[in-house]
Design a binder for these strands. Structure first.
Lengths: 259, 259
DNA sequence: CGTGGTGTTGAACATTTTCAATCAGCGTGG
DNA sequence: CCACGCTGATTGAAAATGTTCAACACCACG
């Protein structure tokens, strides 16, 4: 473990926060997060109630049932939301990427476990002032509604995957989603030849897909054997033909692009 | 098929609507629907843009990809949202009960199939005027956000069920949900001895639970054999001990009651 | 009294999980 | 430099779970 992350943990344990001063105008998620529609005066207001927190890969962010007096945007990194049964079976119910929103206004206890999958930086807002701002500025609540509806769509898409797809289709679907996201960052449609990096371990993929890690491993191997994907190390994937992968995912041609 | 429902279908096919005049103040879902927080002057406004439509059990309401120029509240009855793959596998992704909202402001095409499970009455609002009202009255968009967040929670709870629960646990969970809803209507906590009616056929339950109808039938029989439930006909269920059922559902004791 | 919709049950089969062994990469310390 | 141990990943064989296909039961309705 590196020195600086140790320092961070200590700071966190003491209840202190990183006082990095990043101006909202320069924020990498300026046009994707809950603040996307805010005017500059509204950003000024947000700047006064925001603070940053960072988490190393693997660290818990909040635990199911914990008191939670803030909401946050993911600035960088990947976090997961998981639900766990008494006997330990766990299911990932959300994957939070940069711009995604964590927490629920009006609820003071976390409904899920949130965990940093990679190193994560959050832009946090204390609950009360944020709720006050929501009342005053329709831009925030409007954007939050929009984002929540998108998340609901994603959750429903995932229900189809969990309920009806085979293990092979689940793996293919997951890679398609990662490829889509990758392509979207470069403002392209995913197509033809692509190279990408899986952001999750086999175990995290299993938790996401409702499978065991062994089945994930087997099906990844099978897709490789059948030439649908190539592997470069454990995490880097090469797609010789995106359309072929889509086919394996069992989605309609348009792939559920709704907007 | 009864005369009057035939008449209704004809009216619908001609693009006409039921002009039943129900005052919002007397509406059975007045305090649960998207209009729950509206003041009386806002209700007056809503009354001017609303119209009712009804559907017999089994009828489609909208089809995935269809143009949809309205949003609606379910007034009475039960409707389902389903997603279907090219080869016919289908998964229910939402169950709409009285008060629930159908459609998405700002989207003009349906993302899912919506079907009437029982006879359904919808209170519809044309998209454009509704969106205009959302901009003007924060009560509506605030309530819609709240409802959407609730639905997202429900969807995530369902993801745990679909991804990790056994067939037996799925059936038990479903009955628990129906029992909860039943109890909530009478403003009670579900407990002890209860009697209730399943709103879905075995096939619809299978679609909801990510199972085949045979597996549903077998597991219902198994729960009966083991004394967890009793059957009165095919649809009526008696719960000798709600806690026992909860146990079979594999939920935590609190059962995910979050608010 | 036959018919269609709905539900139940059985037996063979397919898929996924479980348990266990092994491997690959990588940083550490001798 | 190399053996060591750790984590993440792969593979195999046996077992469990759910599906598929098929037969049949129940019952409301014409």
């Amino acid at each position: 473990m590196r020195e600086d992350s140790l320092t961070q943990i200590n700071r966190r344990q003491q209840g202190l926060h990183d006082r990095v001063e990043v101006r909202c105008a320069d924020c990498p998620i300026r046009y994707r997060a809950v603040c996307a529609q805010c005017e500059s005066d509204e950003l000024t207001q947000l700047e006064q109630i925001k603070f940053y927190r960072s988490f190393d890969a693997g660290q818990p962010i909040v635990w199911e049932g914990d008191r939670m007096d803030f909401v946050a945007s993911v600035v960088t990194g990947v976090a997961s939301l998981t639900h766990t049964m008494e006997d330990g079976r766990t299911q990932m119910v959300g994957l939070l990427l940069p711009g995604d929103f964590l927490g629920r206004p009006g609820r003071d206890r976390a409904a899920y476990n949130a965990t940093a999958v990679t190193k994560v930086v959050l832009c946090c807002f204390r609950m009360k002032p944020f709720e006050e701002m929501m009342r005053q500025t329709p831009h925030i609540s409007h954007r939050l509604l929009e984002m929540t509806l998108d998340e609901l769509d994603a959750a429903r898409e995932w229900m189809l995957l969990l309920g009806r797809k085979t293990a092979r289709e689940k793996i293919a679907s997951f890679i398609v989603i990662v490829a889509r996201h990758e392509a979207a960052l470069q403002k392209l449609q995913p197509a033809g030849w692509m190279e990408l990096e899986l952001p999750l371990t086999r175990e995290a993929m299993a938790t996401y897909l409702g499978l065991t890690l062994e089945t994930v491993s087997r099906q990844v191997s099978a897709l490789k054997r059948d030439g649908v994907i190539e592997l470069k190390g454990k995490r880097k994937v090469i797609l010789p033909d995106f359309a072929r992968l889509m086919d394996e995912a069992g989605d309609d041609a348009d792939g559920g692009m709704l907007d």
